[in-house]
Amino acid sequence: MKILKQKQVLAVACHEIKGQLSSFTYWTIILWPLLIAAIFERSGNIHLDLSTSNHLNLNLFWGNFLPIFIFMVSLSYVSIMANSVAADKTSKISEMLLAMVDAKEQLIGKISATYCLMLLHMTIYAGLIYIYERVTHGFIVQTIIRNTSPVFFVYIVLDAAVALFMALVWATEIASYVTDESQVAVAIIPVMLLIGTGTAVSFLFNAPHYFDAGISVMRVYANVVLAFPPIGSLLMPTLLANQNVGYGEAYLNIVIQLVIIAWLLKQSVRQYRFGLLSSKKANPFLAVLSHENTGNSKENKR
């Protein structure tokens, strides 16, 4: 693969950010969770026992919250990414862009823009939570932060970033084969089924002492399975929160996932390039699985 052209990546990212900030969809994914939170807060029926004397509840909270958080973030931004790629493809903009910007720069630029949008999203939430707790003299978020290790927070950020990256790459790859905007859901559903399955399974792992101390067949098997992204990004935080694995094991899992992602990204760029130029009317997901972008295709030689 050619060396990444940073100026082109920046240009694509800026174009994508500008487009999303002016779209209704982006602001909707920010507002609807706030509406749900306001309804729960208004009902007064939700109470979290996260007192400093109850670390078990805090561990279970993280074990349940993190997979749901990763799932919801992935669902929101995978939808945005798939719609963006499909809109460029169906309007023929992607073909013109390929004449100026290679598929690799387009793919990395769009993903970089998504991370910037998500950072803005989380910053808005953090600011609103801070204001809410100051006004209501709340203590829940303060208690969570005070009783959670900074190393764990660093891991959460890295883990969520890895999971989202893989979800975006797959969604973009499939969406590049969309020939009609009605097919966008087909690009989203396979990715979300995989992440949704990992989220559901993570609840089964959300218990202290799930693994026995030392090396066991189940522990070795789980680590092999969790090495494949984004499965590890969904299940490992739950295991770490409940102290079933250590930080060394958790961070090693991220490193292994990044190595796998680097290899998958190389394949995905070729698929993305071929998909943008393909006009074949077929199921986008099946088109990706068929591996139509063989080494003999002219598009892959560009």
Rank of each mutant, 00 (worst) to 15 (best):
L164P: 06
R270H: 13
P33F: 08
H55A: 03
L276S: 03
S76N: 04
I254E: 13
L234Q: 11
Q243N: 14
I260C: 00
N147E: 07
F69G: 02
N147S: 09
A13I: 09
F139N: 05
I140K: 12
L48K: 01
V154P: 01
H291M: 14
L21K: 04
P237S: 00
E249P: 01
S279Q: 15
I17S: 04
W27I: 08
I68Q: 11
Y115E: 12
S297F: 06
L158K: 07
N45K: 12
Y77D: 03
K110V: 12
G109A: 02
W32Y: 15
V186A: 13
R146L: 06
Y125A: 00
G198A: 08
N57R: 06
G232W: 00
S278A: 02
D88L: 01
A86E: 04
D180W: 13
Y210M: 12
L35D: 03
K301Q: 09
L35M: 11
E173A: 06
A250Q: 05
N283G: 11
Y77N: 05
T199Q: 00
Y210A: 11
S297L: 12
N242C: 09
L235R: 04
H137F: 06
A207W: 01
V224P: 15
S84H: 05
S279C: 09
A287M: 14
L34S: 10
I231P: 11
R146I: 00
G275P: 04
V269G: 05
Y155C: 08
P230G: 07
K92E: 12
